[in-house]
Amino acid sequence: MSALTSRRGLLFGTAAVSAGALLAGCTSNEPKSGKPATSDQPAADDKPGKPVTIGFAGPQADHGWLNAINENAKNRAKQYSDVTLEITEGSNDTATQIGQIETLINKKVDVLVILPADGKALTQVGLKAMRAGIPVVNLDRIFNTPQAYRCWIGGDNYGMGLNAGHYIGQKLKDKPEARVVELAGLDNLELTKQRTQGFDDALKNYPNIKKVARQAAEFTVESGQAKMAQLLQAQKKFDAVWNHDDDQGVGALRAIEQAGRDDFLMVGGAGALSAFQAIKQDNSVLKATVLYPPTMAASAIDLARALGQGRGVGGLAEYEIPASITLYSAVVDKNNVDQYMSTGFR
C-alpha cells in the first residue's frame, strides 16, 4: 500500500472507550505537533505475572491516527511491570515491514502485535510467526487467513456508517422530504465501501430521508475542502452531511464556513481531538462524530500480555482470549464528549 492508501482500513449510546473495559472484568497524512491523546482507562490487570516480551510492528506513523496507535501501545505497555515492548520504526513499504517483523521473530519475542500496512501482503509473515510458536495479535487491517493470527482486534467500518446514519435519521425523522449528502473517503478502499453500506442501510429505516449526493475525498484536509465545496455548489439545500473522516472534515468545515452555510448538521468519523473540541464548543455545523478508536492498540497490548501469560481475560468465562474482537463505534456528541476528550488524536 502507498502512504496515501495505508489508511485504517458506532445503534446509539455510549460505549466503553476501548475494548479495555471488556478486558478489565479510520486523520491527516501529515505529521502534526503535539502529543497524541491516549486512553486514560487503567490497565486491565496490573498485578505482575510472568514476564512477557511483546513485539509491536505497525506501519509508518505518517498521520494522526497511526501516531495515536503507537502512543497507545507504548503507554499501555508502560503500565505493566512484567511487559517488555520491542517496537519497530514502522514502514508503509511492505518489504521493509516484513523484514522488521522477521527481526522480531528471530529475537524470539513471546507475542507479536502487528498492524500491517497491507494485510494481504503481510499474511505470510503472520503465518511464519504462528508456525514459529509466536502468537500474533492482528490489529485492525486483517490478514487473509485466520491461520496467520491468534486474535484479531479492530474497528467496525460498517458500524461507523450504520451509527452515523441512525444518528442523522433520529435528528431528521420528523422532517418531511429530508435530504442528506455523504463525504466519503477513498473509494478504492474496502473500508470506505463498508462505511457507505452501513450508512445506506441505516437510512432505509427513515423513508422520509433521501441521500441526494455523494463525493469521495482522499482522507486529507485539502481533498475534504475541495470535495465539500463541490457538494455545496451542487446542492443548494440539504439537511445533513456525513463525513467519513475527521481530518478531511477540517477541510470540509473550511469550505462550509467559506460558503457561509449553516443550514444543516454534520457528523464526522474517527474521533479526532479537533472534532471533539468543535462538538463541545457547539458553534459550527459539526454536531457529532462516530468513533474508530486508536485505543484498540492499548487493548491489543492487554490481549498480547494475556496470551504470553497463558490466561484469558477478565469478564469472560472462557479460559482463552477470544479469536476476534470488533470494537463498537460509539456516537460522540455534546452530551458525552467530555468522556472521550482524552482519547482524541491530533
Rank of each mutant, 00 (worst) to 15 (best):
S2K: 14
R8M: 12
L11T: 13
G13I: 01
T14L: 12
A19R: 00
L22G: 00
G25A: 06
C26W: 01
Q41G: 00
A43N: 00
G49Q: 08
G49S: 09
P51Y: 05
I54R: 09
A57M: 05
G58Y: 03
W65S: 05
L66T: 11
Y80C: 10
D82A: 11
V83I: 15
I87E: 08
S91M: 12
A95N: 12
I98G: 00
E102S: 15
I105G: 10
M130C: 10
I134V: 04
I134C: 06
V137Y: 02
N138M: 08
I153L: 14
G154M: 07
N157Y: 06
G161W: 03
G165P: 05
G165N: 04
I168A: 06
E177N: 15
E182P: 00
A184H: 09
N188W: 04
R195T: 01
A213M: 07
R214M: 08
A217I: 06
T220L: 08
G224Q: 13
D239P: 09
D247A: 15
V250L: 08
L253R: 10
I256W: 06
Q258R: 07
G268R: 08
G271D: 10
A275T: 09
I279V: 14
D282W: 02
A297W: 01
A297S: 14
A298M: 04
S299R: 01
A306S: 08
V313I: 15
I321H: 06
L327M: 06
T343G: 05
